[in-house]
């Protein structure tokens, strides 16, 4: 199957904003079927009707393809934005985190102009100062993994918010687990290309 190049218009691609599969559907401008009123011949009318129907079919095909491209671009953006999670006081990548990161790699390779900012977070336990360092260590670990898979070092930046930006409030393990994470923000591309499968 031939896959078209999926194009998502992105002035500044904020992947985080696409969490939860919120997608903006941009409809292509609809060609206006005009009737000039000059229907003097049946043949001409039939010809026009035929042309119109061909145009309509082409339009439908184009829109379907665009929607598919849009969907795959949106999916690519969502994959780039997917968070990875950590164990308490750890920066090593669990299997689920590796799988999440593995899915980002082909997208990053297919979009060489995209840069990715990686932000490490921690749960609220421990000291604010140590948590800032731990968050940085988590972001750096993610960066190290992505570069080991072929993503250029210069395209990946790291920072830490420590425990200052919890994803969810709460003092149970479920809340803590959601807060021990790395988040991703992509930028620098006007277009995001889905990887060829």
């Amino acid at each position: 199957m031939i896959r078209r190049t999926a194009v998502l218009s992105l002035a500044l691609l904020s992947v985080a904003a696409l969490d939860g599969c919120r997608r903006k559907v941009v409809s292509a401008p609809a060609p206006v079927a005009t009737n000039t009123g000059n229907a003097d011949s049946l043949a001409a009318l039939r010809a026009r009707q035929r042309a119109d129907s061909i145009a309509a079919a082409e339009r439908a095909a184009r829109e379907a393809a665009a929607a598919s491209d849009q969907r795959s671009a949106g999916e690519a953006a969502a994959v780039l934005g997917q968070k990875v999670y950590f164990d308490y006081d750890r920066d090593n990548l669990r299997d689920d985190a590796r799988a999440t990161l593995d899915a980002k790699v082909p997208i990053l390779i297919a979009n060489p102009s995209v840069t990715l900012s990686i932000t490490g977070h921690t749960d609220e336990r421990g000291t604010a100062e140590y948590n800032l360092a731990l968050g940085q260590r988590r972001a750096a670990q993610v960066k190290r993994y992505l570069t080991s898979k072929g993503v250029e070092d210069a395209r990946l930046s790291t920072q830490s918010m420590g425990d200052s930006q919890p994803a969810v409030q709460g003092t149970d393990e479920s809340a803590y687990q959601q807060n021990r994470r790395a988040e991703f923000q992509a930028s620098g591309a006007n277009t995001l290309v889905a990887p060829r499968s």
Binding site: E129, A133, G135, Q136, S160
Partner: peptide, 23 residues
Amino acid sequence: PGVFISPVFSPDGSSVVYAHGVD
């Protein structure tokens, strides 16, 4: 780039010691 943490003055006030790291 990276993170800057926990600055303190030296007792003579001439310098600041802090934690910093990137990757």
